Amino acid sequence: MNGQTRNASFASCSTCFLGALCLAHGLTHQESAQLDAIIPAPLRLEKGQLLVRQNDSFTSLFAVRSGSLKQVTVTDCAEMLVTALCLPGDMVGFDAIGSERIAGDVVALETTTLCEFPFAELDALCGRLPGLRRRLMANLSQAMHEERQRLHLLLSKKAEVRLACFLLAVSERFRQRGFSSRHFRLPISRSEMGNYLGLTHETVGRTLTALQANRLLSVRGRDYHLLDLERLALLAESTGRRQRRSDGA
């Protein structure tokens, strides 16, 4: 896409600080070198730039090194849905492997760098490196698990529970990447968050206000400080439904 640039000087897979979350995890030094050999120099996107466009032909997977992206999918009814939030260590493009078409516009939410894995070369390399194939399957499995969890969340939870689950999921993702699990910056707006969670912008605002009033979190702009992870977890684990009275009323 126009405006994308590449950085020729970058850390190899074996020395990348996100290696434990990426495809190189568990590979020997020699195997990691073979993976390095098929990866072009990292891409750099500025805020608002497209990585790929919906319905483009699928040719590569991408790993987020720094920054963040969102995926926006336009449905047959012309509805725009935020269908993914990608943070450092996340893989982009798994949902395009089967159809060989990109599922939605992938847009940088801030300055972002990514590693590209040309899929034809990656697939061939997986045939020679069982450890790489297992790692790819593990990442695919995790992506499916997270998507099923999000679907369950959208179908069965009230707004406050959806938001608590979302914030805890983001918290855990930052923790896995070596960042603070309690204090982080969310790159998406409240409107985008609502779209992602199946809520209106107004509902997100009211719910955040209520959670702050209960001293579960503090929000300043897009900076989130989770004040009580234990109570947030209890809220996330609740059904989010009103209990029926025993007398049937």
Rank of each mutant, 00 (worst) to 15 (best):
L132H: 01
L151D: 14
G127C: 08
A143H: 09
P130E: 04
T112R: 03
A138C: 04
L155G: 06
S99T: 14
L129A: 00
G131R: 12
L155R: 11
A143T: 07
G104S: 04
L114D: 07
I97E: 06
R148C: 13
A124R: 07
I97L: 13
K157W: 00
P88G: 07
G104W: 00
D95M: 09
Q142T: 11
V106P: 02
M144P: 00
L153F: 05
M91H: 02
D95S: 15
L155A: 13
R128D: 11
V92G: 02
C115D: 14
L129D: 01
N139W: 01
T112M: 11
S156R: 08
Q142N: 10
G131D: 04
R150V: 09
V82Y: 02
P118K: 12
R101D: 06
R101V: 10
E116M: 12
G131Y: 02
E110S: 09
E146Q: 15
E146S: 15
Q142M: 13
A138E: 11
L114V: 08
M91E: 07
K157E: 10
R148E: 14
D95Q: 11
I97A: 06
L153K: 12
H145F: 09
L129R: 03
G89T: 08
L109A: 02
E160H: 06
V106Q: 07
R135Y: 02
L155K: 07
R135M: 10
A143E: 09
T83M: 09
H145V: 13
E121C: 09
R148H: 12
E147D: 14
R135P: 03
D123P: 00
F117I: 09
T113S: 12
L153E: 15
E121I: 05
D105P: 00
H152D: 15
A124D: 08
S99P: 04
E121W: 04
P130N: 06
R134D: 12
F117T: 08
C126A: 10
P88Y: 01
D90F: 03
I97K: 04
G131I: 05
L114T: 07
R134P: 00
L136D: 01
V106F: 02
L85T: 03
A84P: 03
A108D: 13
A96F: 01
S99Q: 13
V106E: 05
A120Y: 10
H152R: 05
V82M: 08
R134K: 11
T113R: 07
D90A: 12
F119D: 05
T83L: 09
T111A: 14
C126M: 15
L132E: 05
N139G: 11
A108F: 04
A103G: 08
